[in-house]
Design a protein around this nucleic acid. Structure first.
Length: 427
DNA sequence: TCTGGGGTCCTAGGACCC
DNA sequence: TCTGGGGTCCTAGGACCC
């Protein structure tokens, strides 16, 4: 018998987190902004009703502050991550096998017992999360991840569902649901595929399920073939095999204002390298290459344009901050051009492998005392940064700070992770 | 004037090898 | 003038997701 897969997805996650601590704002349009207060990345129902789109630039909707009482928060990921972890612990009370898929959704395998009322369990899950965190969710239940995702979309689309759609108990319900869902609502079908498929007369999820796996594979790709299989209830996406090590680690930011100065750009890159290497070490991994990207604001019609990326490698896998900072410096030297109004920078760490996989071969040098020293220095730096915040201590001698930090002017307090910010209830 | 950031997987095509 | 065929590895870029 197939596993029963349940997808739990938070409604308007970031906006809901903010509202959970600001009940006084309920009923008002609320958005959460991306880094630099640039785009709307979460919207309350009321904000959606105003026609504000996902990732819409904030300057285009700011006028609603005056006319419609729109409230904007700068993104507060510390808060959202903490809330997300609370929700996962709630789910673990219902399922022995919870795999978080993103900050606002998790797949859970439900134990399959006879005569189990799946819809009832879905409602219990929703109720528990709402009661304990104040966040609304949708629940989709089926035998494949793709169907569970689609059922979840249907739960949100049709209020009559009460937020839970179960495709397991009544087998006919699958086909009825597929018939009313457009292909662009299917997980894995984006803009490009939607255009191609609709041109071929494939309009609904049901059409796609009948397209045929072979046709999908030959005319499109193995990815779409898997989707077709999953829509027919046959699992094709392998279970999450507890991959703890990322394939790549990215850290990038847009600047609060335009930067012309190389050393300021480098100081932003040093910051990104610190974040990236921290993540690499947390995963117990080493990496062999790092890319540095810099660029002007591609959306500007007046700025002189330049974008480029440079990559540097190390022959020996490393998780050393100093090593990667030096490599990043070299990469920046390769691509730097004077005289452009730089708007962003980033780094990508690639060729990552768990430390335990690295074998010392014939040509590897034995660990030198120098390496041990570097390791010790890095531990100290990490401790300082953990305690006082990233960037409090850095390795390379370079100009500190520089005016590149993104804007974040409307950040909410760290309600759940800082004693100083704990909300006070007046009763 | 003002347009985010962090990921995954797949594919095509070039380099290279025998 | 004629100019193999099959395989692997790597990389850049596309598509998609949240």
């Amino acid at each position: 018998m197939n596993d029963i897969i349940c997808l739990v997805d938070c409604n308007n996650m970031f906006a809901s987190c903010e509202l959970a601590f600001r009940p006084d704002l309920r009923g008002r349009p609320v958005v959460v902004l991306s880094s630099n207060d640039a785009c709307c990345i979460a919207r309350s129902y009321e904000a959606k009703a105003l026609g504000i789109k996902m990732a819409q630039p904030y300057f285009q909707v700011r006028h609603f502050e005056k006319t419609k009482g729109l409230i904007a928060f700068s993104a507060n990921f510390t808060l959202y991550t903490d809330m997300s972890q609370r929700i996962v612990s709630i789910l673990e009370k219902f399922s022995p096998d919870v795999s978080p898929y993103s900050i606002d959704e998790s797949f859970c395998v439900l134990p399959s017992l006879n005569n189990m009322n799946l819809e009832h369990i879905g409602k219990q899950i929703r109720g528990a999360i709402l009661k304990q965190t104040g966040i609304g969710t949708g629940v989709g239940i089926s035998t494949t991840k793709t169907l569970a995702k689609l059922a979840n979309n249907a739960a949100k689309k049709f209020p009559k569902s009460g937020g839970v759609v179960d495709l397991v108990t009544d087998p006919n319900r699958r086909e009825r649901m597929l018939a009313v869902m457009d292909i662009n609502e299917v997980w894995g079908v984006g803009k490009a595929l939607t255009a191609k498929l609709t041109a071929m007369g494939v309009n609904t999820a049901l059409d796609l399920s009948k397209f045929g796996e072979t046709a999908a594979k030959t005319q499109f790709s193995v990815v779409l073939a898997r989707t077709v299989s999953e829509l027919n209830g046959i699992p094709a996406i392998p279970a999450d095999d507890t991959v703890v090590v990322n394939r790549q680690i990215i850290a990038s930011r847009s600047y609060g204002e335009k930067i012309f100065d190389k050393e300021t750009v480098f100081s932003s890159i040093v910051h990104h390298v610190s974040r990236g290497v921290k993540k690499l070490r947390e995963q117990g991994a080493v990496a062999y290459s790092i890319s540095v990207t810099i660029g002007t604001n591609a959306n500007s019609s007046i700025d002189k344009q330049y974008q480029n990326a440079g990559t540097c490698r190390t022959a020996v896998g490393s998780d050393d901050l100093k090593t990667f900072t030096e490599l990043a410096r070299k990469a920046l030297d390769q691509i730097w051009r004077e005289g452009f109004p730089y708007a962003k920078s980033g780094i990508t760490i690639n060729d990552i492998t768990p430390k335990s996989n690295v074998q010392n071969d014939l040509f590897d040098l034995p660990t030198e005392p120098e390496d041990k020293k570097s390791e010790a220095v890095q531990s100290v730096i990490e401790n300082i940064n953990n305690r006082y915040g990233l960037g409090s201590a850095v390795v390379a001698s370079h100009k500190q700070g520089g005016d590149w930090q993104p804007k974040s002017e409307q950040r909410s307090p760290a309600y759940t992770t800082s004693w100083a910010d704990i909300p006070i209830v007046k009763a």
